[in-house]
């Protein structure tokens, strides 16, 4: 139990640590950091490596945006083998649809209710 959480912590923390090194050394903005990590998730999934990282790190590997990328690629690849070209096109979006729809609903709702506040 505890060892699982330690693994989650170390894997998730290490991914973020790599991101921080990138930010510190290259001055990339948040959007570019997210793109780079998402893409690396897609690539690692296509190469078949990321599943091993998930097996080891559990949420430590799925919660970072890298996991989101691997989910996209995994969905597209499995749908492609089942349904051919249409599956290849739709599969990625299908797997992340829950998360995406949720974030849009959340965004619109909070945009209706809340205004941003100044920093102190």
């Amino acid at each position: 139990m505890l060892i699982t959480y330690l693994r989650v912590f170390v894997v998730g923390g290490s991914i973020c640590l790599i991101g921080q090194v990138l930010i510190n050394t290259t001055k990339l903005t948040a959007a570019k950091i997210l793109v780079i990590f998402l893409l690396s998730g897609v690539v690692l999934e296509v190469l078949g490596i990321y599943q091993h990282i998930i097996d080891f790190g559990h949420a430590g590997a799925t919660v970072p945006i890298v996991g989101f990328g691997s989910l996209l690629a995994k969905g597209a690849m499995s749908a492609a083998s089942e349904r051919g070209i249409l599956g290849a096109i739709a599969g990625g979006l299908e797997t992340v649809s829950v998360c995406l729809s949720a974030v849009m609903v959340a965004g619109l709702l909070s945009g209706l209710i809340i205004s941003s506040r100044t920093k102190k």
Binding site: A31, L34, V35, L38, L39, V42, E45, V46, I65, F68, G69, L72, A73, G75, A76, M77, S78, A79, A80, S81, G84, I85, G87, A88, I89, G91, G92, L93, L100
Partner: peptide, 18 residues
């Protein structure tokens, strides 16, 4: 941009799988 690139990459990976 994250979504655009992510989804395009997923389509590419689907095609690679095909």
């Amino acid at each position: 941009p994250v979504l655009v690139i992510g989804i395009v990459a997923s389509v590419l990976s689907g095609i690679i799988a095909l």
